[in-house]
């Protein structure tokens, strides 16, 4: 069965790019527009991995990671954050919040797939 990956980003174009790349590689993709939306959609859905942006309205990426890690049903879920080169402090913050890994924006499709493979097997 194909694995399901959730992409969380307020930018529709980034979501589409991520979704397009992942679907092409045979994954099922669920989209969410911010942290809140993501948490709501994670309840009940079988998601194997989350790829999230950090700067988002309503609930940002760091808070989302913390929320997932403190949820007994979700706490071991692999989470990869999307960061920009300049956000090194954010990267550390995300890491200590419990992110599994990160992808630096802008990225190419094969870079994304390499990270997904690394984290998801």
């Amino acid at each position: 069965m194909s694995k399901t990956i959730m992409t969380v980003d307020d930018s529709a174009s980034v979501r589409q790019m991520v979704a397009f790349t992942l679907k092409g590689a045979g994954y099922t993709v669920v989209e969410a527009v911010d942290g809140k939306d993501a948490l709501a959609k994670l309840k009940g859905a079988q998601v194997n991995m989350v790829i999230t942006d950090l700067n988002m309205p309503n609930m940002d990426g760091i808070s989302l990671i913390k929320a997932i890690r403190s949820d007994a049903a979700l706490k071991f879920l692999p989470i990869v954050m999307l960061t920009t080169e300049s956000q090194d402090t954010k990267k550390k913050e995300g890491k200590s919040a419990g992110a599994t890994g990160w992808i630096v924006k802008p990225f190419k499709p094969d870079q994304l797939l390499a990270v997904v493979k690394k984290v998801l097997g």
Binding site: K75, F76, I79, T100, K118, L120, G121
Partner: peptide, 14 residues
Amino acid sequence: LFMSGTNPVLLLNE
């Protein structure tokens, strides 16, 4: 380690 969602087996496989 597990709390960061990392699976060490995958790293060993890599």
